[in-house]
Write a protein that binds this DNA or RNA. Structure first.
Lengths: 228, 228
DNA sequence: CGACTCCTTGACAGCGTTCAACAGTAGTGG
DNA sequence: CCACTACTGTTGAACGCTGTCAAGGAGTCG
């Protein structure tokens, strides 16, 4: 159902200094860049975690599957986001795929771990990355456990608005199916919720592209998406 | 609805060496012990995170509320568990309460942070605690987003069985309402699911105490709780 | 142009919630 | 120690939100 071919990543070697995990005492961490075509797998669940990644261009989904095919997308990783860090664990806990054509920066985790043993700054940066993932997961638990469909979709739009932040309108990189599997809904319910938000004037689609969305009334969305 | 009186904790001063976060290079961390009566708050969401805690006796629930009163219990902390670490953040992200009369070990986070600045071992232990919380939250997302009621309850029983591990039977410290708010269900659905598991012979209650449960057929429970 | 993907919309079913009644237990105060 | 009350858990009935099934439109790609 969700089977994908695993295309070899395009190779691109390049030392770069923009990685947030960068150590201060050991600033010469060499980074590779790879480009993944839309839909290709970056790594699989339970595979050894050899790299940590940062999104340079594109978007990534990381998900878990139940044995009968049900899928939950734990997170979308957008430009600038760091993912693949397991917080010390040996294996990945999610499968990740490129949502669209995506370029990633890579750093070997082995060298990272060796450095972290003697580099408190780097370790604390790793802690920061892990803590950020934890905060997101905690909020997502509340959403999945206790919010209705309209609240989930409204909350998702507000989050994407913050993270994509392209003046006025935003273009969602992912389709309805991905959104549904992130919000614990079906794609039909996501579609109906979006239509309802459009009818009530909270959002607006641009032209025929159903992924180009304007948040017309953020206040209305926020009132739908109750906070703690 | 969930209002509780905040009883002052019983004071008990005691240096102890059993805290897993303990630094190797700085082994003289002094710990306090406090006892909280059933139902009392340990700390509130958004309060400054001044301490990290370890459960010595009892059980703790940590939860978030929506403004209309809906509650999601993100985690139960049982004997030995460490909680309250925010992974570097300044404020707590959950409210925590004692589920039953509970004794905790405390360590001042300020001293922890100061030490961690120069102590890579301690920082990596903090990272380990945070990573463990993250793993639990990730599994809980899958449960809340994609599992049915019976699967959730079966999975919960198996998890509690592992963590409580009292030969043969286990005594759940929390009531149906707490279980429901942890699993994203209502207490009625939890009760019905448990009754159904009892009727099908997967579990059994001991005497009249509905919190004393024997997992008669773990294999049956595992087949209900699909894994990835 | 045809096949495919993605999205929307409608009709209907089902799972879990809501509302309600009841029983057993624990807690409280006389 | 008992009576009273509150709390906890179970069960039933009806409702409603979301899922399932199905059809169709619009855009994309070869």
């Amino acid at each position: 159902m969700f089977a994908r071919r695993n295309t070899s990543p395009t190779f691109g070697f390049k030392p770069l200094g923009d990685f947030r995990l960068m150590s201060r005492t050991n600033p010469t961490v060499f980074l590779n860049e790879y480009t993944y075509k839309k839909g290709t797998e970056i790594y699989g669940e339970k595979e050894p975690a050899d790299y940590v990644y940062q999104v340079k261009i594109g978007a990534v989904r990381s998900y878990k599957l139940l044995s009968d095919g049900r899928r939950l997308i734990g997170a979308f990783h957008l430009v600038g986001d760091i993912f693949g860090s397991t917080g010390g664990g040996e294996n990945h806990r999610f499968t990740t795929e490129a949502v669209v054509d995506t370029t990633l920066r890579l750093i070997k985790r082995q060298s990272l771990d060796l450095m972290a043993k003697e580099d408190a700054v780097l370790t604390r940066n790793l802690l920061g990355v892990t803590a950020k993932s934890l905060r997101h997961a905690e909020d997502q638990m509340l959403l999945l456990g206790r919010k209705g469909a309209l609240e989930r979709v409204a909350g998702f739009l507000l989050e994407m608005d913050k993270r994509l932040a392209t003046a006025g309108a935003m273009t969602l990189p992912m389709g309805r199916h991905d959104i549904a599997d992130h919000l614990g809904l079906t794609l039909e319910t996501v579609s109906r919720s979006l239509s309802r938000l459009r009818r009530t004037g909270a959002i607006s689609f641009i032209g025929y592209r159903q992924r180009d969305i304007i948040l017309v009334n953020r206040e209305q969305l926020r009132s739908l998406d109750l906070q703690g």
